[in-house]
Structures are given as structure tokens and as C-alpha cells.
């Protein structure tokens, strides 16, 4: 069953916590991965790959650069999840 917006944000929070050590409660829709969450361009790839597995979605390299905020990633996953 497709994940809801809340489930996706919670899942991304777990992933960001695991990869960058950021508290899950800090991972909010309006937060920028790079500027607010200490996720640099390489960690972002790890976040993307973990999100792909968790949400059964494909996020090609050319789309990764457009995912600036947690909201961008959440919307992308909502739209593309299998």
C-alpha cells in the first residue's frame, strides 16, 4: 500500500537520523537537506538510495538535484511510489 505524506516524512526522518545523526523531530517538510539538516551532496545520495528501498520508488540521478527540501522529496515519493 502506498505510504501517506506523514509516513514518508517519518521515514525520511529515520533515514536522515541514521545517515547524518540529525534528531528525527528536526526533519520537517520545510527543512533544506543541505542548509538545515547537514546532509551534503554525497550524503544526499545515501538518503536517496535508502528512500528508494523504503518506499519502492526510483529516483534517478538527474532528479536528485531538484530535491532541495524534505517537502520536495516527500512530494516526489508520493507521486512516484510503486
Amino acid at each position: 500500500m502506498a505510504a501517506t505524506q506523514e509516513e514518508i516524512v517519518a521515514g525520511l526522518a529515520d533515514i536522515v537520523n541514521e545517515i547524518a545523526g540529525i534528531p528525527v523531530e528536526d526533519v520537517q517538510l520545510d527543512k533544506s537537506f543541505t542548509d538545515d539538516l547537514d546532509v551534503d551532496s554525497l550524503s544526499m545520495v545515501e538518503v536517496v538510495v535508502a528512500a528508494e528501498e523504503r518506499f519502492d520508488v526510483k529516483i534517478p540521478d538527474e532528479d536528485v538535484k531538484n530535491l532541495k527540501t524534505v517537502g520536495d522529496a516527500t512530494n516526489y515519493i508520493l507521486k512516484h511510489q510503486g
Binding site: S41, L42, M44, V45, E46, V48, V49, D61, K65
Partner: peptide, 12 residues
């Protein structure tokens, strides 16, 4: 090189 694409391929 395209850093993110290389990183993803190299690691995973």
C-alpha cells in the same frame, strides 16, 4: 565527473 552519479554507482 558527475559526483553524485559516481558516488551512487561506486558505493551501491
Amino acid at each position: 565527473q558527475e559526483g553524485q552519479a559516481v558516488f551512487r554507482w561506486a558505493v551501491f
